[in-house]
Amino acid sequence: MRTKDISQKIGFAALFMCMLVTLFFLGAIIYFIAARGIKVISWEFLTQVPKAGMTQGGVAPAIVGTLYITLGAIAVSLPLGLACAIYLCEYSPKGIFVNIIRMSINNLAGVPSVVFGLFGLAVFVKFFKFGVSILSGSLTLGILALPVVISATQEALTAVPLSLREASLALGATKWETIKKIVLPTALPGILTGIILSIGRVAGETAPILFTAATFYTRRYPDSVFSEVMALPYHIYALMTEGAHPKEQTAIAYGCALILLVLVLAISGAAIFIRQRQRIRNA
């Protein structure tokens, strides 16, 4: 065999190893959390409030709390994100404004999540006096999710052929009619996928809600947007670092981690596979 063939063999083997190691960690994370988490999962665990100083009972308030904060965040980011993507894809004349907006979106996407947490603390908790609450947490996470919603919507909108827009305009439809009746319905599946993906992202975020929404221990369900709540991701962290019963708490943390993982993987996995299928079909 010639040297160039040998180097090719070695090189390709190395690349294959990289892929394998990456997937190995995916497998390891899912395996360990599933194997150990499944032991504590029960109907009671999913539906009861915590008991006996977090060592018994369930984590239902954390599940409900995560649900509320996530829905709240989407309610914030969806209208803004849609509008922004529509502006960028349909209205924007090329120019300095558009570049500034694009740059802001890219940079907003790169801001560390803990910085969003501080922003939420200073603005929503302190300045607007919403307190540590569902409202503050949702607003903070909503801003964090904004770039995700925008880029997913943009991808869906640019996939709509120009010829459909032309056909509509040539019939005497106005721009807005064209967007509302032709572009958005055509892009809808793609937009939905993007929204599902950002739901998955938001549901797992911890750092932004540390100081804006989350509390370690409550036996009550939230009764208004101004309530502080338990949330699954924060609960995992808190169980590992606070409280007086590390052993029992660790078991519960495994349970929480499994619920969160199943939740996020089910949501994101669905979106990822739908998008994959759309991409193959479009290709």
């Binding site: 459909l164 032309e166 040539a170 019939l171 005497g172 055509t186």
Partner: peptide, 15 residues
């Protein structure tokens, strides 16, 4: 455009 209609190169029916 309401008074002057247009048919394009490639058929472009709405989905």
């Amino acid at each position: 455009r309401r008074r002057v209609g247009m048919v394009f190169q490639k058929p472009n029916p709405f989905p």
